[in-house]
Nucleic acid binder design. Structure first.
Lengths: 144, 144
DNA sequence: ATAATCTCTACCGAATATATAGACATTTGG
DNA sequence: CCAAATGTCTATATATTCGGTAGAGATTAT
């Protein structure tokens, strides 16, 4: 299990916006403040925009800002905008009826549910308040 | 979050061995019984061996067998043998002392712990008893 | 000795992740 | 209306990982 750079950068970009909620930030400002590759960040911001998490405006005085208060945006929403969603499908021949109660499929279902719920419990506000550095973010690339 | 083919194949190979605990199986037998690519399986079995989960013997009448009863081998042990381990390191500047209680780092620690514990709750015996088909195993490639 | 097996290291091709390029559209202020 | 500053979009390039293969060598049973 691994958090992609895309996921990491999305979180960091959103943190930058959350810490600057009064005014819009240009892509360049976000990129330099968080040391993110600008053109890659562009794509990520577009994804965040099409998920409705940020607003943007072109032109001078343009830039990006949060579409909602940081309090009401969750880590799960941010990651969901740029990562594959948690699949929650069971194969036809493994419905609850014929599945052994402690089987590996049930196990994985449990894990998915837990992770999904967890990701929805932490708000952008909380992680923006936390003093998370770029170095800390590196630690977010985690494995199972 | 994704289970690699390596992980899937390791589980299936171990299931094959668990269902045939009386005698050793050759790589070819394991590969054909579970429809696994033989040369790839070789490498996986070597990893399982160096983790002490299986024993092997060369020569005629040689082959692989479980090093311990299927009851005492867990899914976590199998995946751990072939996948990257769950890292459990915290960066120096994010010890418990200065970490916000609901921060993203804590969140991820929680997830890791939960998954790690979960993977240790299901034994090889349990998944070998369960009628898990190759098709079911496909469903194990899951995403978060 | 020979044949059957496991062991080890290197390599390859394809897919995926990461990143860059550049032409274009939109907005602001003069 | 023009120019400059920005975001938008699509294509492409590069790096890394994944899945798989090759083949020479070591071990064992008979």
């Amino acid at each position: 299990m691994r958090l992609s750079k895309k996921g990491e950068y999305a979180l960091r970009a959103m943190i930058a916006l959350a810490r600057n909620e009064e005014s819009a930030m240009t892509i360049t400002q976000i990129a330099t403040s968080q040391t993110l590759p600008k053109k890659f960040l562009e794509q990520i911001l577009l994804a965040l925009k099409s998920s409705g998490l940020v607003r943007s405006k072109a032109g001078p005085k343009g830039g990006y800002e949060l579409a909602e208060p940081a309090r009401s945006i969750t880590v799960g929403m941010i990651l969901g905008a740029v990562e594959e969603p948690i699949s929650h499908t069971r194969t036809a021949n493994n419905t609850d009826e014929n599945l052994a109660p402690s089987g590996v499929l049930t196990l994985l279902e449990d894990i998915k549910l837990y992770v999904r719920n967890k990701l929805e419990t932490v708000s952008l506000q909380e992680i923006a308040d936390e003093a998370v550095t770029a170095q800390d973010m590196e630690a977010l690339m985690w494995y199972i």
